[in-house]
Write a protein that binds this DNA or RNA. Structure first.
Lengths: 229, 229
DNA sequence: TATTTTTAGTGTATGTATTACACTATGTCA
DNA sequence: TGACATAGTGTAATACATACACTAAAAATA
């Protein structure tokens, strides 16, 4: 090669699209930026990857630092490498998405330093950098994945009713589902364990509570079982 | 924060898992390393990302440089960020997978400088770095994606028979498919255009040639059509 | 030129899964 | 005790998936 190439020793960041179900709406958690660039704008929680840290670890650490969340479902989404996505210098971002049970989080959010807020995915503010693209991709991924993997349960509390579950799917997929057909199908998988409890929620008939049997799912999966819608 | 963190200004590479169909087998293209580390070992084609270049562009450039391939189907796969995946220093690799029509490539491969060779996915040599993990993930992704997106055609020449197509799916999925049911289903989509040509291939009945109607697929997709197996 | 070889090409019946659809049950509150 | 709100339940019609075996067309050879 006749001349020296300028290889990217790029600044590497992780960003997280954190989904939560709140008041029957699908929301994501955003942080208001304290510094330039995009000072005052809302952005995904995230930050620089440390030298002796895997990408997954960095994503978990940033989530914990900025939002107080730990032990959440977290999966790599896509890596964004447009040249000018950060106006300062070349920054490549490995995007993750996370699913959290809002019941867990409610308390912690308050104690955190950074200004974090939940926004409905349908009404997001303007976002910093290319974060709107990242959110859009995360939403598409979530909609795709929820159809063939039982990840929806990560958004619900450990005990939930079938109505809760159905509403979750309706919100994520943006469609209405038939109650009887939905119940028939999900109960047919044999992965929901009815508890000896009902949800008392005033002024109407109480509903049976269930939990998701994750162990059983893992076993079935090894034998080629496929969770489909 | 009490002390300075060491942020990763990581060396960034792209690596490509290039799939091709050759002699009825699914193969991937490997390069024999000329330099340490892993000198002499087989590895995925790839290299450093330049500063003023997107990740996709880097992946395409490396593919062109090392294998002579251009205009192939290319999609980001996953980003690998284990701390010691390169023994020299921290190197994060954005992995891609590519699907190529071997007919296109056959000629070009010979003219290339680097020693490149096709290996059946079922009989790969030992690979450098964590490239075996990358290949494994790429294969899983391909198997998943081929079921609900018509990407298999990227591995076939522009004109192909239904038997070609069926064998392709059988090889990728590792299952046998019923000929009549397979034909019924793929013809049912209305995306295969019969040509006024047959494939003459000695000693037996010639087969109808088809092409895949990519334009029609794009239109149908916008109207919510779903290609399924 | 008849026979063999090899792959191409075709239809139906059965079972399984999906859809559409409406009423009764059980609790709280006024 | 009646009104309200959500929970919970079954069936019939249709579409889809599966299993399955023979005939058709060309080339090669006897």
């Amino acid at each position: 090669m006749p001349h020296t190439y300028q290889y990217a020793r790029a600044a590497l960041t992780v960003d997280g699209v954190v989904f939560g179900l709140d008041a029957g709406e699908l929301k994501i958690l955003l942080i208001q930026r304290a510094l330039e660039p995009f000072k005052g704008k809302w952005a995904l929680p995230g930050g620089f990857v440390h030298v002796e840290e895997t990408l997954d670890a960095a994503a978990r650490r940033e989530l914990a630092e900025e939002t107080g969340l730990a032990d959440v479902f977290l999966e790599q989404l896509y890596t964004f490498g447009a040249v000018k996505r950060d106006p300062r210098e070349r920054v490549v971002s490995v995007a993750y998405y996370a699913l959290v049970k809002l019941s867990d989080h409610a308390a912690k959010a308050a104690t955190d330093a950074a200004k974090a807020e939940w926004f409905p995915v349908s009404r997001l503010p303007q976002l910093a950098f290319d974060h709107a693209d990242i959110v859009a991709l995360a939403l598409t991924r979530l909609q795709g994945k929820v159809r063939y993997q039982p990840i929806g349960f990560e958004l619900l509390p450990p005990k939930f009713t079938l109505s809760d579950l159905q509403h979750l799917y309706e919100v994520i997929l943006g469609t209405e589902l038939d109650k009887r057909n939905f119940r028939k199908k999900v109960l047919g998988f044999g992965l929901l364990v009815p508890l000896n409890e009902t949800q008392m929620s005033g002024r109407h008939r109480p509903a049976q509570l269930f939990r998701f049997d994750a162990d059983k799912y893992e076993k079935l999966k090894k034998r080629g079982f496929n969770f489909e819608l």
